[in-house]
Protein backbone atom coordinates (compact mmCIF):
# COMPACT_ATOMS: atom_id res chain seq x y z
CA UNK A 1 0.00 0.00 0.00
CA UNK A 2 2.83 2.30 0.97
CA UNK A 3 4.57 1.51 -2.31
CA UNK A 4 1.45 2.22 -4.33
CA UNK A 5 0.95 5.55 -2.50
CA UNK A 6 4.54 6.46 -3.31
CA UNK A 7 3.92 5.78 -6.97
CA UNK A 8 0.61 7.65 -6.92
CA UNK A 9 2.16 10.74 -5.34
CA UNK A 10 5.00 10.61 -7.84
CA UNK A 11 2.56 10.32 -10.76
CA UNK A 12 0.40 13.11 -9.42
CA UNK A 13 3.35 15.40 -8.91
CA UNK A 14 4.68 14.74 -12.40
CA UNK A 15 1.25 15.39 -13.87
CA UNK A 16 0.87 18.68 -12.02
CA UNK A 17 4.33 19.75 -13.08
CA UNK A 18 3.83 18.77 -16.71
CA UNK A 19 0.32 20.12 -17.20
CA UNK A 20 0.18 23.12 -14.90
CA UNK A 21 3.63 24.31 -14.02
CA UNK A 22 6.05 23.66 -16.87
CA UNK A 23 3.81 25.30 -19.49
CA UNK A 24 4.06 28.57 -17.57
CA UNK A 25 7.76 28.50 -16.97
CA UNK A 26 9.79 31.27 -18.50
CA UNK A 27 12.60 31.10 -20.99
CA UNK A 28 12.80 27.77 -22.88
CA UNK A 29 11.88 25.69 -19.83
CA UNK A 30 8.29 25.45 -21.04
CA UNK A 31 9.50 23.09 -23.77
CA UNK A 32 10.59 20.48 -21.24
CA UNK A 33 8.82 17.15 -21.55
CA UNK A 34 9.21 16.10 -17.97
CA UNK A 35 7.07 12.99 -18.23
CA UNK A 36 8.99 11.64 -21.20
CA UNK A 37 12.33 12.29 -19.54
CA UNK A 38 11.19 10.64 -16.33
CA UNK A 39 9.83 7.64 -18.24
CA UNK A 40 13.18 7.16 -19.93
CA UNK A 41 15.00 7.62 -16.67
CA UNK A 42 12.82 5.06 -14.89
CA UNK A 43 13.12 2.63 -17.80
CA UNK A 44 16.90 2.84 -17.86
CA UNK A 45 17.53 3.03 -14.12
CA UNK A 46 14.91 0.48 -13.06
CA UNK A 47 13.09 -1.68 -15.59
CA UNK A 48 11.50 -1.10 -18.93
CA UNK A 49 8.40 -2.87 -17.59
CA UNK A 50 7.99 -0.11 -15.05
CA UNK A 51 8.42 2.41 -17.86
CA UNK A 52 5.66 0.72 -19.84
CA UNK A 53 3.26 0.70 -16.88
CA UNK A 54 4.01 4.37 -16.28
CA UNK A 55 3.50 5.13 -19.95
CA UNK A 56 -0.02 3.64 -19.78
CA UNK A 57 -0.86 5.67 -16.71
CA UNK A 58 0.63 8.91 -18.00
CA UNK A 59 -0.85 8.28 -21.42
CA UNK A 60 -4.35 8.13 -19.97
CA UNK A 61 -3.79 11.07 -17.64
CA UNK A 62 -2.35 13.28 -20.36
CA UNK A 63 -5.11 12.25 -22.73
CA UNK A 64 -7.68 13.38 -20.17
CA UNK A 65 -6.11 16.84 -20.18
CA UNK A 66 -5.41 16.88 -23.89
CA UNK A 67 -7.38 18.44 -26.73
CA UNK A 68 -6.22 15.69 -29.05
CA UNK A 69 -8.45 12.63 -29.50
CA UNK A 70 -8.23 10.20 -26.61
CA UNK A 71 -5.38 7.75 -27.04
CA UNK A 72 -2.93 10.17 -28.68
CA UNK A 73 -0.61 10.38 -25.70
CA UNK A 74 -1.27 6.78 -24.73
CA UNK A 75 -0.14 5.52 -28.13
CA UNK A 76 2.72 8.03 -28.43
CA UNK A 77 4.19 7.17 -25.04
CA UNK A 78 3.78 3.42 -25.47
CA UNK A 79 5.30 3.42 -28.95
CA UNK A 80 8.14 5.62 -27.75
CA UNK A 81 8.89 3.30 -24.85
CA UNK A 82 8.76 0.30 -27.17
CA UNK A 83 11.28 1.78 -29.60
CA UNK A 84 13.50 2.91 -26.75
CA UNK A 85 13.40 -0.60 -25.35
CA UNK A 86 14.31 -2.13 -28.71
CA UNK A 87 17.10 0.39 -29.24
CA UNK A 88 18.46 -0.20 -25.76
CA UNK A 89 18.49 -3.97 -26.19
CA UNK A 90 20.04 -3.96 -29.62
CA UNK A 91 22.53 -1.10 -29.56
CA UNK A 92 23.33 -0.26 -25.96
CA UNK A 93 25.21 -2.63 -23.73
CA UNK A 94 24.82 -1.15 -20.30
CA UNK A 95 23.10 1.41 -18.18
CA UNK A 96 25.12 4.56 -18.32
CA UNK A 97 24.67 8.26 -18.68
CA UNK A 98 25.40 7.91 -22.39
CA UNK A 99 22.65 5.31 -22.78
CA UNK A 100 20.35 7.61 -20.90
CA UNK A 101 21.19 10.60 -23.07
CA UNK A 102 20.92 8.56 -26.26
CA UNK A 103 17.57 7.07 -25.26
CA UNK A 104 16.20 10.43 -24.18
CA UNK A 105 17.21 11.96 -27.52
CA UNK A 106 15.68 9.06 -29.43
CA UNK A 107 12.48 9.08 -27.40
CA UNK A 108 12.13 12.85 -27.85
CA UNK A 109 12.41 12.42 -31.61
CA UNK A 110 9.92 9.54 -31.76
CA UNK A 111 7.44 11.07 -29.36
CA UNK A 112 7.49 14.41 -31.17
CA UNK A 113 7.20 12.75 -34.57
CA UNK A 114 4.06 10.93 -33.41
CA UNK A 115 2.59 14.01 -31.76
CA UNK A 116 3.37 16.14 -34.79
CA UNK A 117 1.62 13.59 -37.00
CA UNK A 118 -1.44 13.79 -34.77
CA UNK A 119 -1.43 17.55 -34.92
CA UNK A 120 -1.12 17.52 -38.68
CA UNK A 121 -3.93 14.99 -39.01
CA UNK A 122 -6.36 16.55 -36.60
CA UNK A 123 -5.59 20.25 -36.74
CA UNK A 124 -3.59 21.30 -39.70
CA UNK A 125 -5.57 19.29 -42.26
CA UNK A 126 -7.99 22.18 -42.54
CA UNK A 127 -5.21 24.60 -43.13
CA UNK A 128 -3.49 25.33 -46.40
CA UNK A 129 -0.17 24.22 -44.93
CA UNK A 130 -1.22 20.61 -44.60
CA UNK A 131 1.98 18.55 -44.65
CA UNK A 132 3.87 21.62 -45.58
CA UNK A 133 7.62 21.22 -45.36
CA UNK A 134 7.93 24.85 -44.28
CA UNK A 135 5.56 24.23 -41.40
CA UNK A 136 7.59 21.22 -40.36
CA UNK A 137 10.78 23.26 -40.45
CA UNK A 138 9.14 26.02 -38.46
CA UNK A 139 7.98 23.55 -35.84
CA UNK A 140 11.47 22.02 -35.64
CA UNK A 141 13.05 25.43 -35.25
CA UNK A 142 10.60 26.88 -32.77
CA UNK A 143 9.66 23.88 -30.71
CA UNK A 144 11.42 20.59 -31.29
CA UNK A 145 15.04 21.73 -31.06
CA UNK A 146 14.40 23.47 -27.75
CA UNK A 147 12.57 20.46 -26.38
CA UNK A 148 15.39 18.14 -27.38
CA UNK A 149 18.04 20.35 -25.77
CA UNK A 150 16.10 21.01 -22.60
CA UNK A 151 15.17 17.33 -22.24
CA UNK A 152 18.81 16.31 -22.54
CA UNK A 153 19.92 18.94 -20.05
CA UNK A 154 17.25 17.83 -17.63
CA UNK A 155 18.08 14.14 -17.94
CA UNK A 156 21.74 14.92 -17.23
CA UNK A 157 20.75 16.93 -14.17
CA UNK A 158 18.50 14.08 -13.09
CA UNK A 159 21.33 11.60 -13.59
CA UNK A 160 23.77 13.70 -11.57
CA UNK A 161 21.26 14.14 -8.77
CA UNK A 162 20.49 10.45 -8.77
CA UNK A 163 24.14 9.50 -8.94
CA UNK A 164 24.78 11.29 -5.67
CA UNK A 165 22.24 9.20 -3.85
CA UNK A 166 22.50 5.81 -5.53
CA UNK A 167 25.12 3.33 -6.68
CA UNK A 168 22.96 1.97 -9.45
CA UNK A 169 24.94 3.70 -12.18
CA UNK A 170 28.30 3.56 -10.45
CA UNK A 171 28.18 -0.20 -10.10
CA UNK A 172 27.48 -0.50 -13.77
CA UNK A 173 30.42 1.71 -14.59
CA UNK A 174 32.71 -0.42 -12.50
CA UNK A 175 31.45 -3.59 -14.12
CA UNK A 176 31.91 -2.08 -17.53
CA UNK A 177 35.50 -1.13 -16.96
CA UNK A 178 36.28 -4.57 -15.60
CA UNK A 179 35.12 -6.31 -18.75
Amino acid sequence: MKRISKHLIFILLLLVFQVAIISNLPFYLSHLNLILVCLMFLSVVYKFKLGIVYSFIFGVLLDIYSALPFGAYLIALTVTIYFAYKFFNQFLTNKSVYSLIGLTALSTVIFNAIMYSYKVLFYYNNAREFFSFDLLLLWIKTDFIYQLVINLIFVIVLFLAYNFTSNRFRAVFIDTTKQ
Binding site: V16, V19, A20, I21, N24, P26, L61, I64, Y65
Partner: peptide
Amino acid sequence: VVGVTKGLLGYGYSISNEVGQKYL
Protein backbone atom coordinates in the same frame (compact mmCIF):
# COMPACT_ATOMS: atom_id res chain seq x y z
CA VAL B 1 -8.87 11.71 -11.79
CA VAL B 2 -10.07 15.14 -12.87
CA GLY B 3 -11.70 15.70 -9.47
CA VAL B 4 -8.54 14.79 -7.60
CA THR B 5 -6.08 16.58 -9.84
CA LYS B 6 -8.13 19.67 -10.77
CA GLY B 7 -7.42 21.50 -7.52
CA LEU B 8 -3.77 20.59 -7.57
CA LEU B 9 -3.41 21.61 -11.19
CA GLY B 10 -5.16 24.92 -10.51
CA TYR B 11 -2.92 25.62 -7.56
CA GLY B 12 0.19 24.63 -9.48
CA TYR B 13 -0.87 26.71 -12.45
CA SER B 14 -1.48 29.83 -10.36
CA ILE B 15 1.94 29.45 -8.70
CA SER B 16 3.74 28.88 -11.97
CA ASN B 17 1.79 31.72 -13.56
CA GLU B 18 2.92 34.02 -10.79
CA VAL B 19 6.51 32.88 -11.21
CA GLY B 20 6.21 33.31 -14.96
CA GLN B 21 4.75 36.77 -14.54
CA LYS B 22 7.50 37.74 -12.15
CA TYR B 23 10.05 36.55 -14.63
CA LEU B 24 8.26 38.46 -17.41
